[in-house]
Design a protein around this nucleic acid. Structure first.
Length: 857
RNA sequence: GCCCCUGUGGCGGAAUUGGUAGACGCGGCAGACUCAAAAUCUGUUGUUGGUGACAACGUGCUGGUUCGAGUCCGGCCAGGGGCACCA
């Protein structure tokens, strides 16, 4: 009996696919296209198990669709700009480019050893000028279209590293690298006008029916659309500041207003601070604590009574006090609100503290006695009930009152109904070297001047130093000094680079024509886009996926693409987890640093007691990491792939276990053995199936064809774990099958070939080897997916459960679609059923054809 | 605080529209082969009672709808995730 040698065999077939260019594709109008994409990796140097899971799933889909006759685009590239390269430069003295390209080479080798059906001729790296020069071109388009602009904004500033930080790089108010407390700074930065598309980005979420609901919901919440009223309150005796604009989503509660609250950053607060020392002190203190995200949670709601009063817009002669408060954000709405304590929790807290009136204007539906409302100890915030104490709104329900209040404010000319969003424009500039240069020049006379075509691309200089904190491009002695392209005067080159999320917002488009002299060839993107199936982690649910959706819309305006949505189908995979281990002193241990002791408990290699902890996401800090290359080396790619697909549903987190890998490895060996033992008995390839078959042979054919139907459905619906279980069942059936006559061996060959075809997308190397052993000259990768014959999938008998009083008492096998009377008679004739109903009266019998008979007693 | 998801044997998980709970795998137990081990194969494996046929119980807890509920509805509990002064 020969053994399957995964290591050598896998290399052989990888070479065969590469040599024949099996997975190279081009546009082909005669075939339906299918674009499969997994989120491209950051080239950290090694692949991790998350990559293995991600790319295995994508490869199953790609190979399956290919077998179904689709022209499949399945490319790979590198999200290659980013901070780790600069950190490596700082810490190890290597150039970011050298470090990155070396990592790419290592990771490419790892990925290639997985046997993925990738078109490597389309490989791209975002850090290569051949990629980022096109990005610069796209940026200038956005600039010309008014979708990119510069403005002063409050941003996270790391005072030690002297750079802007993204929100996710701020941990507990400190810079993630330097550990220094992050400051809010007003800086002039580059933004993309994502807010121009918010309505559409929100509405179109409903069309993305092959996206997880969860992701769509997260995007919806992130965009945060709200409808409300913007209106102004006139101030009493402030000719310098006659009115304050507020925004509210609850204009129905205006009659419950007992104060106005404005942000410390509001112009009126700033004006007051200039004339009043107490106001200045309050504003200064609020800005200090109020801007640190971590403190906001615990910060007490505080206010400063300005002494100024504002006229109520609907109640003549009535005024309310104006407070500067530490809990109103300048960035949202108008930076000012009206406080209605009775119907807002935060306002209730504030009013209680500062002894302001609490006026009840919405009567909850279950409240019989509105007069008792003032005795309540908390705000009523539901939008349910009828208006009271509210003048012209009295008697209306909340939605009616909202509409009526907006209409009235508009009629009075003091306000208008508006829509507000939580989402702001996208800050894309970073004070970093290892990113795509922003191709503009700042001229004292001409302002912002795009770099002209003849000087494009703006390449990163190679000779940079990382010995000083801050942006190496800014420290470079010559790079930023240029002549203005317009007037020729001395000017300054932009030294900021793009956020790496810009790079990943259009790479899927570049894959369609990766060597084109323009960012995207229109014919190529028209053929391939949108991506039919995108696969990646849930951690990108908002940022990357929202930015990409924005980018497509911007590019469409420019006529570079014809679609709005980049990803027609999205699948978010779960994480790969592993048990954690700690020694007696609390140090984390790697999985290969522990072993089972004589009593079955974990011990370290030197015999010390080890505590096994929770199963958690593989991470360097917990050391619960398995290196994929050691698994690929020891067991081969097919085993790793099979294990990744087994057991756990793909969207859920999975636990990596040694037992699981060994189980997968044993199965690959078992498949080979089943084939090896069957081979001598098999008829030649392509021999015709005899018309008459023995009962076991017919049953085998049925099992095989039913497996095809089930596995096909499971792959289509991303239920890889179910497909794996079905394949195990077929393998078990095959293993038990002993061919008798010649017809039996025909059925055996057919079932074996089906098994190999079904296994192919998951264990492609073993699949090819088995396919060749079956006598085929062609590649399994070029073989069509098997068709399930309807007459073999059809069940002519069914198992029907018989219940008495809802409890199972028997199962009977009857012919399919047996009529109800006969089914009932068959059920009642069962001995066990008779025993169960003996001495009881039959009330009725429920008969569900092909499923169940329930005798009600 | 608000929103969302999840909860099934020792473990990962199956279970079409409400219709036989536990497919398949891992692990365990018993056996075969072997001088022995590895590998492989066979049987068995939700809990309890019974030699057995069988019976009772069983899908986080609790109440309901139904001939019938893991699945539907109400109220809880636990774990995970997202958002969080958003007016």
């Amino acid at each position: 009996m020969s053994r399957y040698n995964a290591k050598e065999t896998e290399k052989k077939w990888q070479a065969a696919w590469a040599g024949r260019g099996t997975f190279r594709v081009g546009e082909d109008a005669s075939k339906p296209k299918y674009y499969v994409l997994e989120m491209f990796p950051y080239p950290s140097g090694r692949i991790h198990m998350g990559h293995v899971r991600n790319y295995t799933m994508g490869d199953v889909v790609a190979r399956y669709k290919r077998a179904r006759g689709f022209n499949v685009l399945h490319p790979m590239g590198w999200d290659a700009f980013g901070l780790p390269a600069e950190n490596a430069a700082r810490d190890k003295g290597v150039h970011p480019a050298d470090w990155t390209y070396a990592n790419i080479a290592d990771m490419r080798r790892d990925l290639q050893s997985m046997g993925l059906s990738l078109d490597w001729s389309r490989e791209i790296a975002t850090c290569h000028p051949e990629y980022y020069r096109h990005q610069q071109k796209l940026f200038l388009d956005l600039l010309a279209a008014g979708l990119a602009y510069r403005k002063e904004a409050s941003v996270n500033w790391d005072p030690v590293d002297q750079t802007v930080l993204a929100n996710e790089q701020v941990i507990d108010g400190r810079g993630w690298r330097s550990g220094a407390p992050v400051e809010k700074r007003k800086l002039t930065q580059w933004f993309f006008r994502i807010t121009a598309f918010l309505e559409d980005l929100l509405r179109a979420l409903d069309t993305l029916d092959r996206w997880p609901d969860r992701v769509r919901l997260m995007q919806r919440n992130w965009i945060g659309r709200s409808e409300g009223l913007q209106l102004h309150f006139d101030l009493v005796d402030r000719p310098d500041f006659p009115r304050i604009d507020i925004y509210t989503t609850r204009p129905d509660t205006l009659f419950g207003a007992s104060f106005l609250a404005i942000s410390p950053e509001h112009p009126f607060a700033q004006a007051l601070a200039k004339e009043n020392a107490a106001a200045a002190a309050f504003v200064a203190e609020s800005l200090r604590t109020g801007t640190s995200e971590a403190l906001i949670e615990t910060a007490e709601k505080r206010g400063f009574d300005t002494g100024v009063r504002a006229r109520h817009p609907f109640i003549p002669g009535h005024t309310v006090p104006v407070f500067v408060v530490n809990f109103v954000l300048m960035e949202y709405g108008t930076g000012a609100i009206f406080g209605c304590p009775a119907h807002d929790e935060r306002d209730f807290e504030f009013a209680t503290k500062y002894r302001l009136p609490i006026l009840w204007v919405v009567c909850p539906p279950d409240e019989k006695n509105p007069a008792s409302l003032p005795t309540r100890r908390e705000a009523y915030t539901e939008k349910l009930g009828r208006m009271i104490n509210s003048g012209f709104l009295d008697g209306l329900d909340v939605p009616e009152a909202i509409r009526a209040a907006i209409a009235k404010a508009e009629a009075m000319g003091i306000g208008k109904g508006v829509v507000n969003f939580r989402q702001r424009d996208w800050l894309v500039s970073r004070q970093r070297y290892w990113g795509c240069p922003i191709p503009v020049i700042h001229c004292g006379a001409c302002g912002i001047v795009p770099v002209p075509e003849r000087d494009m691309p703006v390449k990163l200089p190679d000779d940079v130093r990382f010995d000083k904190p801050g942006n190496p491009l800014d420290h470079h002695p010559t790079w930023k000094h240029v002549a203005c392209p317009k007037c020729g005067a001395a000017a300054r080159r932009e030294t900021d680079t793009f956020d790496t999320f810009v790079d990943s917002s259009w790479y899927f488009g570049r894959f369609c024509s990766p060597r084109a002299d323009e960012p995207m060839q229109r014919a190529a993107v028209d053929y391939w886009l949108p991506v039919d199936q995108y696969i990646g982690g849930i951690e990108h649910a908002i940022l990357h996926l929202l930015y990409s959706r924005f980018f497509m819309r911007a590019l469409k305006l420019d006529g570079r693409v014809g679609v709005d949505e980049p990803f027609a189908g999205l699948f978010t995979q779960g994480m790969v987890c592993h048990e954690t281990y700690q020694d007696a002193s609390g140090n984390w241990l790697m999985p290969n640093e522990v072993t089972r002791g004589p009593d079955g408990n974990w011990i370290s290699l030197d015999g010390q007691k080890v505590a096994a902890g929770r199963v958690e996401k593989m991470s360097k800090s917990k050391k619960n990491v398995i290196d994929p290359s050691s698994i690929l080396d020891q067991y081969g790619a097919d085993t790793a792939r099979w294990f990744m697909l087994s057991d756990s549903p793909p969207e859920r987190d999975m636990e990596w276990t040694t037992a699981g890998v060994e189980g997968a490895w044993r199965f690959s060996q078992r498949l080979w053995r089943i084939l090896d033992e069957a081979l001598p008995a098999l008829p030649a390839t392509g021999a015709a199936m005899p018309a008459a078959l023995s009962a076991p042979a017919f049953a085998l054919r049925q099992a095989a064809h039913r497996t095809v139907a089930a596995v096909t459905n499971d792959i289509e619906t991303f239920h890889f774990n179910r497909a794996v279980a079905r394949i195990y069942e077929l393998a078990n059936t095959l293993q038990e099958f002993r061919p008798g006559d010649a017809g039996d061996s025909h059925a055996l060959r057919e079932a074996l070939e089906i098994l190999v075809c079904l296994v192919g997308p998951m264990m492609p190397h073993l699949g090819e080897e088995m396919w060749a052993a079956l006598g085929h000259q062609t590649l399994l990768a070029d073989t069509a997916w098997p068709e399930a014959a309807p007459e073999l999938v059809y069940q002519d008998t069914v198992m029907v459960a018989v219940q008495v009083g809802g409890k199972l008492r028997a199962t009977i096998e009857v012919s399919r679609d047996l009529d109800q009377a006969a089914l009932e008679a068959a059920a009642l004739s069962q001995e066990n059923v008779q025993r169960a109903i003996a001495g009881r009266t039959l009330r009725k019998v429920i008969v569900v054809p092909n499923r169940i008979v329930n005798v009600v007693v």
